[in-house]
Structure formats: structure tokens, C-alpha cells
Design a protein around this nucleic acid. Structure first.
Lengths: 133, 133
DNA sequence: CTGAATCCCTGCCGATACTG
DNA sequence: CAGTATCGGCAGGGATTCAG
């Protein structure tokens, strides 16, 4: 997926960020950056679990039973690369790894809230409902 | 892409919406609904253009030159189905079609703003910046 | 326990060509 | 002008298996 700008039109008083005028999906756009962080199936659910508190790999698997090891592993690595979560290894046996949100990760709370709010207000067309115009 | 809930943990005072506890990516989750509406490459850029005012097919192509006819057509049909935009045909020749945001579509402004804000605050790891924890 | 490697299948998106 | 039809490449993600 790829996305972009917006913001300038929504807030005419915004700083004249040149990224608000891009004409193609570029990774430099802030909207792209955020959607890239949340990209992938299960990603928002993993973030939600971590918003409730730090978790181990197994705890996440138990919270999301239908999520496979491979995909969970991928999602966690992705979120670490995106600076959303941190990975903490505890020495000894058995290996224990805890995942916690970074400061940036915690800042995703309001973003997910905005996504929730719009979806909650929106009727998912049951079927044949235009919208409201 | 697929996503989910959140909201309950972010706002402990939220109504006890059962959707806040789903354990897999279901279309019933509000977060899923919103991400489904914005799903697909170019989608947010098309919405941004329409937030600036209504547009015709050709005007959108000119605003987003790298976007192909086929994909633009797909995105517009998708956004209509999602209740985000309306399609207005004007009789006569040549055919003129204007696309405008619905009320729900205009409500996406704050959502895109939230996405913009997080991405703008976040350093896209240039490379090698964990996050903040 | 916490993953990584592999296989395969599906769905997206771009390019090109064609129609009302 | 405003699309649709078709094709092909590639990345995403699920199941299974293997490793530190």
C-alpha cells in the first residue's frame, strides 16, 4: 500500500510543508510514514496489545491465537525497525523476550483512536448506503 | 491489509465496545473499517485532492500524473462503495463526471491529519534510530 | 521459548489496448 | 471524456518445518 499528504487543505494554517503537495506515493510523506508503520495484517492488533502493557512473544500468541509464529515474528521485527516497539532480551534459560512500546509507539494511541472513531461513526454500508452527501 | 480495535486501552472510559477485544482482523472493527476505506496505493492522495475541492476524472489524472487510468478508476469506485465520495454525472457530450466528498469523506480530514502528525514527528530512522524507549 | 527458512498461493498494481 | 478488459510481475501472508 502507499499513501500520502493531506493536512495542508485540512489545516490551511499549517506550515507550508512541501510534502503536502506531492503528486505520488513517496516514503517522505508523513501520512505514508505512519501507514507504513501500521502496514500489514495484524499490525494494529499487535500494537493494541502492547498499548495494554508489555508482552512476551508467547503472551502475544495467546492474545491473538489465529496469528502464526512467522507473521508475529515479522510484525514485531517490522515494528522494531519502525521505532514503534523495543525488544528486551533476558539472559538465562528459557529465553525470555519482552516487547514494549517506545515513546513513538505510545504516540500511536491517538492515531488509532482517530481511526477507531471514524470507523465507529461510519455505517459499513449494509448494503446500499451511499454515505451522506 | 487488515487491522483492528484499540481505543479501549487508550480511553479506559470508552463504552465497553466488544469490538475493542477482538482477537483477529475482522471487518467489524472500526479501525479495520477506516483502514479499509483508505486501503490501496494512491487512495489517500485521491482523498487529499478531493479535500481541496471536487474534481473530474481528468483533473485528478492531471493532479496525479503517475496514476494510471485503471487504478484511478478502481480507487474512485472503491471510495464510492465505502461512502467516502459521490459520483455526479452530467448529461450531454462530452461526458462530465464530478467527484465530491460525502459528509463521511470530509470527516476523514482529522484522520489524515492524525496520520500526518505522527509521521511528521517521527524520524524515519536515517538509519539506526530505535525510537525513544 | 523465540524465532528463522522455505513453499506456495493469492491479490495488488502497472502497462497496454479498447469502448460508450 | 471517462472509463473497462486483459495480462503479467511481485510482494504479502499462511502452513509447515527447522534452529539458537
Amino acid at each position: 500500500m502507499a499513501h500520502q499528504t493531506v493536512g495542508h487543505p485540512v489545516r490551511p494554517g499549517l506550515p507550508d510543508d512541501p510534502r503536502a503537495g506531492v503528486t505520488e506515493p513517496t516514503p517522505a510523506c508523513p501520512v505514508e510514514i505512519t501507514l507504513a508503520a501500521l502496514h500489514g495484517r495484524w499490525t494494529t492488533l499487535v500494537v493494541r496489545e502492547l498499548l495494554r502493557g508489555d508482552r512476551t512473544f508467547t503472551e502475544l500468541r495467546e492474545a491473538l491465537p489465529a496469528l502464526s509464529d512467522k507473521v508475529l515474528s515479522e510484525r514485531l521485527a517490522h515494528l522494531v525497525r519502525m521505532g514503534v516497539i523495543d525488544r528486551h532480551r533476558r539472559a538465562g534459560w528459557p529465553p525470555r523476550v519482552r516487547y514494549t512500546l517506545t515513546a513513538h509507539g505510545r504516540d500511536l494511541g491517538p492515531v488509532l483512536q482517530a481511526l477507531w472513531d471514524w470507523g465507529a461513526r461510519h455505517r459499513p454500508l449494509p448494503p446500499g448506503e451511499p454515505g451522506g452527501s
